[in-house]
Amino acid sequence: MAITRVLAHSTVTDLTMAEDWYTRLFGRAPDARPMPGLLEWHLADTFGVQVWSEPNRAGHSSMVLDESDLDALAARLDQAGIAHDGPQDATSSRILSLADPDGNRVVFAGEFS
């Protein structure tokens, strides 16, 4: 087996509301709409994020994304109107934890300053 790509996944109730939130999170519109009910942001050649509308399963997803500058990200999220508690120290890194409108967890991890 040779896995060549990973897509983190978030399941939501309302795709329009989720598209707005994730567009503000990533600072751009989705890169693809592979099928009805599915949005994709391609963050690099080998990884990205999928947002899938499935109301009965929504709100139970988690993803962790590495970020090189959590402080700059926090400032950008403030400008985009996305609520957060700012970067926090964890055991081996710093994290910035968010919840999308359905309560799905999106955690950005970075190195200590």
Results as ranks from 00 to 15, higher is better:
Phe108Asn: 06
Gly103Ile: 12
Thr4His: 14
Gln50Leu: 13
Ala83Val: 13
Val51Leu: 09
Ser92Tyr: 14
Asp78Tyr: 01
Phe47Val: 08
Ala99Asn: 10
Asp69Leu: 02
Arg76Thr: 07
Thr91Gly: 15
Gly81Val: 03
Asn56Glu: 15
Gln50Ala: 15
Leu98Gly: 09
Tyr22Ala: 11
Ser92Leu: 13
Glu54Thr: 12
Leu15Cys: 11
Gln88Lys: 12
Arg24Ser: 07
Leu73Thr: 07
Phe112Trp: 08
Asn56Cys: 05
Val6Thr: 15
His84Gly: 04
Glu111Lys: 07
Ser62Thr: 04
Glu67His: 10
Leu70Met: 03
Pro34Phe: 01
Ala72Trp: 02
Glu40Phe: 10
His9Gln: 15
Ala80Tyr: 06
Leu98Tyr: 09
Ala18Tyr: 02
Pro55Gln: 08
Tyr22Glu: 13
Gln88Tyr: 00
Arg94Cys: 03
Leu96Gln: 07
Trp21Ser: 13
His60Tyr: 00
Met17Leu: 15
Leu70Cys: 06
Arg28Glu: 13
Thr4Trp: 03
Val51Cys: 12
Arg76Val: 00
Trp41Leu: 04
Asp20Gly: 12
Phe112Asp: 13
Pro55Ser: 08
Phe112Cys: 05
Leu65Phe: 06
Glu19Arg: 15
Leu15Lys: 07
Phe26Glu: 08
Met17Phe: 01
Ser68Ala: 10
Ala83Pro: 05
His60Asn: 08
Gly103Trp: 10
Gly48Gln: 10
Arg28Ser: 14
Ala72Phe: 02
Arg28Phe: 05
Phe26Asn: 07
Ser93Met: 14
Asp71Asn: 10
Ala83Asn: 10
Glu67Phe: 04
Arg57Thr: 04
Ala99Phe: 00
Leu39Arg: 15
Ala75Tyr: 00
Asp69Gly: 05
Ile82Ser: 06
Ala83Leu: 04
Arg76Lys: 11
Glu19Val: 00
